[in-house]
Simulated assay, not measured.
Amino acid sequence: MSLKLKNRVQSIDIFRAVTMFLMIFVNDIEGIPGVPGWIQHAGEQTDGLGLADIVFPAFLFIVGLSIPHAIQGRLQRGQSKGKITGYIISRSLILIFIGFMHANMETYSDSAPIPLTWWEIQVTLSFFLIWIDYPRHTSKILVYILRGAGVALLIAMCALYKGGTPAAPTWLHFSWWGILGLIGWAYLLCALIYLYSDGHLLVLVSAWVLFLLFNLDFHFGWLNFLNGTQNYLGLAGNGAMQAFTSSGLVISCMYDWFMRNKQPKLIWVALIMLSLILFNMGFIVRYFSGGISKANDTPSWVMICTAINILAYGVFMFFMDMKRKENWFSLIKPAGTSTLTCYLLPFLFYPLYQMTNIGYPNWATHGIGGLIKCLLFAFLMVWMAGVLERKHIKLKI
């Protein structure tokens, strides 16, 4: 396993920042009439791709890009594989749990003891209290008090949860893993594969191909006997999420391999060739496995989005790591360094805004005006994450 990987790479941080910014933007624009269709998600029955359909795959790809750097940093600090394994599992479980809670927000009942707005605010505040990366100079007693308050608040909100309908009420239950839950599952499996393969490129490529094949076979119907059990195999998303993350792993380690062998120019050949292969494969299987569809995790969607991610990373790598143009994205950089904070801030803003009963001006509710409003909102969330980061309020798991 190479020990030359840098702990932080500008291209990855900036790629993550742009992706997080776009994730906030496309989530906010959902349901606004009169905006260009190519920005939004393609319909569930549509054979096509919108900007919103590319954002989540890009984030999973970036998770894969980041795994080698994070694990190498821990190995360089002398941590054992056992300790790193514990870190990977705990981090994954936290992401899965937060995703599970977010999924339950979607089925929250109007007849619950407290309104959804209050419940959402309290749950999000508990996440902050528990998982803030408290500065080292903070008193341990204060940290224990704040984290204990967060745990108590979270337990109370779990106890008060009520979902379903008045006729068929439910408590916290599984419907789907949520965005963060899917990321957690993909991270868990891919990080463990990287750690215990010692970053061996052949093993990582084999894992990537295996996830692609699993996704293909699932849609062709050959693995129907696994229906309903793939989640227990860590393959939530029918292998698609792991395929995106493992592709990032492969690209990150491939780049390191070319650099160690003093063949930096060949990385561009590899990126272009892989993208061309994946684009062609994606359009070929499009006609046999449900078209291009994010809603159905189709192989065509997986392959085409992976090709786009690879090319996009090549662009970021060229301008950020080689041309040193980080200042181009300085305005949204906090989205790449305080990513989880940035993701969770809207879960505070939306319910607080709904409680004020202040409506948006008419021009901001549709069309170009709505588009501008969503862009401004994304900038606002990133700016707030930056302010909190400077005040040492940053979520870290």
Rank of each mutant, 00 (worst) to 15 (best):
F377G: 00
F319A: 08
S247G: 11
D133R: 13
S300I: 02
R74K: 15
K394E: 12
S246M: 12
T356L: 04
S275T: 11
V55A: 03
A236H: 04
S293Q: 05
T46L: 12
E30Y: 07
F15T: 07
N238K: 15
R8C: 12
G237Y: 09
T117E: 15
A243K: 05
F56N: 02
M157R: 11
A156T: 09
G282W: 02
Y360L: 14
M355F: 10
L212V: 13
G64W: 01
S66V: 07
I332Y: 02
I284L: 11
V203W: 10
Q242F: 07
F97R: 02
L210K: 08
K262C: 11
L201A: 09
T365H: 00
L189A: 09
I12G: 03
T365Y: 00
A156S: 14
V203I: 15
I308E: 08
K262N: 15
Q40R: 04
E389A: 14
V151K: 05
N231Q: 15
S300P: 01
S338M: 10
R390A: 12
F174H: 10
F220C: 07
M20E: 02
A385P: 06
Y232Q: 11
L216I: 14
G37Q: 06
M23R: 00
P68L: 03
K81R: 13
G234F: 07
P68I: 03
C190Y: 02
G290C: 06
T19D: 05
N261G: 11
P135R: 07
W38H: 04
Y255P: 03
F319N: 08
L233P: 08
G359I: 11
T339A: 14
L189M: 11
V55I: 13
L5C: 06
W177N: 10
I121E: 05
I372G: 00
S111Q: 14
L352P: 02
L202F: 11
I89P: 04
I132N: 12
G370P: 00
A307L: 01
I132D: 08
V18A: 09
Y287G: 12
M105I: 12
V387H: 12
C374P: 01
A364L: 06
S275K: 09
R16G: 02
A378L: 02
V269C: 10
Q72S: 14
S2M: 09
S126H: 06
I132E: 07
L395Q: 02
L93H: 05
N357L: 14
S92N: 05
G86C: 07
G234D: 06
W208R: 09
P264E: 07
G82Y: 09
L65P: 03
H69V: 11
M355H: 06
F379C: 07
F379K: 02
M241S: 08
M281L: 15
M1G: 15
F56D: 02
W38I: 01
L249W: 02
W363Q: 00
W363A: 00
P36A: 00
A207D: 05
H200T: 15
F214V: 14
G163I: 03
W38L: 03
K294E: 13
G228S: 10
A270F: 12
N227H: 15
I358C: 04
S92Q: 05
L60S: 05
V315M: 08
L180P: 03
G369I: 00
N261V: 07
R286V: 03
F349A: 10
M259L: 15
V269R: 12
K162V: 11
V205H: 05
K4C: 13
Y144G: 10
D321M: 06
A103Y: 01
Q354H: 13
T19E: 04
Q40W: 01
